[in-house]
Structures are given as structure tokens and as C-alpha cells.
Design a protein around this nucleic acid. Structure first.
Lengths: 126, 126
DNA sequence: GCAATGCTACTACATATGTAGTAGTAATAC
DNA sequence: GTATTACTACTACATATGTAGTAGCATTGC
């Protein structure tokens, strides 16, 4: 029932749908960089699986092809991934933060931004 | 032949080894809370797989049982998980940070701490 | 020494995921 | 209206992971 955990390929497909609003299998496939573009049927199979998980739905049929759209938001999907990662860390965010910083991929600006967001949240909750 | 990505159960087993230094299958199994303790052979199978991945190794045999120890550090293993998550986000940390904050699991203190760490790093790199 | 117990090594199986082939039907191009 | 092309629906298969059973050898307790 809840939000399904999406895999790498599934997320890439969802990304195409979140960006385009809606798309056909072919359009999704062509959204992949030519060099690492899976076969048409690979995308198709994965879209069908996403459909089974209720993460995408068919919106209409145009000509002989179907058009799909995301049925879960990017936020929800991303949140699920992060919650699952956190679970692997026993729910502790500290090591996650530490590694993000250590990886050199978080800038001071990101932190500042985060801090601002956090202050806003705190104010709203009071 | 980089560091393998470890799964949920694998991480739980590694956690036991990182905590105890070294342990037998039975000891690892008993480190699980009674209510969600997998069968002995489930732990065994998973330890064997970790061995195949070179994430653990046998250190000795005591009586008729083997004693295992971690062959990769907690840091390395955690780092791998985070790098893989980041890859799902196209390498952008911003959404990860945003979700961590939104989840309410990161406190302002965590951010302050992170900021301090980051400032230190920047200084060192100059 | 022999029976009980415990551990190992191996096998088995279900689900998830990445990957893609094939058969057949539907749209299209003339 | 027929040949080509494109898409769908289905099948197949390998690897990863969680899960656990079984057969048999090693230890141990007497």
C-alpha cells in the first residue's frame, strides 16, 4: 500500500515523467543519454512494474501507444529512499550528514540554505 | 573491485561485527533483538555471502565454530550506501539535505556541527 | 565409547530488479 | 488495400537478497 521503494532504473524513468509531465514508453526511452539507453522493452517492462506498484498510470492512448504519467510525486519517492537509507543507519542522521560532508559534495551554501529552512520550520511549529 | 554495496541484513550483521570486533555466527545471530531474530542459517548464509564479497573474513576456528571479523570499515560501508543514494539523485545533495530536514530528524545543532566541520575542511584544503 | 548437541556446508526457494527477445496487432504510407 | 513500421503484451533469464531446511561431521558430557 504505502509508497513503494523505487530502484535506480525506476527512478530514472520517474524522473523523465516528472520532467515531462507525461510521456510514452518511447519518449521515456529517448530521454536516456544515447550511450546508456536501455532497450525499448527494458523501459517497457519497468514502466509496467511501476504501474503495478501504482507509481505511474496510463492517462490516455494516442494512436497505438499509451501515455503515462507519474502517480507519486518526486518528493514522496525521494523521501522514501532517504527514509530507507536512514533505517540502515538505525535512524541516526549524524553519520549521514558526516558522510555527505566528507564526500565533499555539500557546500557551505547548502548548509546555510538548510539552516535557513530549518529556522523557518521551527518558527512555524511554534 | 571496489567496495560492495551491502544490503539491510548485511549491514545489520556488519554492525554486530563492528561492535564486537569479531564474532561467531551464533553470536551475530544473538545480537539481533529476540523478536526479529532471523534463523541461524539465515545469518550463516548472509555471512557467507559477505565473505564472498570480501566484506568479512574468518579469523580463526574455536572448537567447532568459526570466528569472523569485518574486512571493511563501517565508514567505507556507510560511504558506499550514501554514494549510491546520491547517484539516484543525480549526485545532487540539495534534495537529500532538504528531505533530511523535512523529516525532522536533523536538528539545528546537527547543522551547526556540520557547518563547523565544513569550515575546518575548507581551511585545511587551502 | 557413545549419545546428544551444535556447527558447517550445501541446497532450496521466493521476490526484486535489470535486461531483452518474440509474437501479434495496430497505425501508416502509399 | 497491402507492406512496413511501431507498439503492446508476454515470456525469459540472470543476479541479488531474505529466508530457512537438511545432512553430516565435530565436540562434549558422561
Amino acid at each position: 500500500m504505502g509508497n513503494p521503494k523505487l530502484s535506480r532504473l525506476e527512478m530514472q524513468i520517474m524522473e523523465a515523467l516528472w520532467n515531462c509531465g507525461s510521456a510514452s514508453i518511447r519518449e521515456i526511452q529517448e530521454s536516456f543519454p544515447e550511450k546508456k539507453r536501455p532497450a525499448y522493452t527494458t523501459i517497457q517492462t519497468t514502466v509496467y512494474r511501476l504501474e503495478a506498484k501504482k507509481a505511474v498510470r496510463r492517462v490516455k492512448k494516442v494512436g497505438n501507444f499509451h501515455v503515462f504519467e507519474a502517480a507519486v510525486s518526486r518528493d514522496i519517492a525521494q523521501r522514501k529512499l532517504i527514509d530507507d537509507l536512514l533505517a540502515l543507519f538505525g535512524g541516526r542522521t549524524q553519520p549521514v550528514m558526516a558522510h555527505l560532508i566528507e564526500s565533499g559534495k555539500v557546500t557551505l551554501a547548502d548548509i546555510k540554505e538548510a539552516e535557513k529552512t530549518l529556522r523557518h520550520l521551527e518558527r512555524e511549529e511554534k
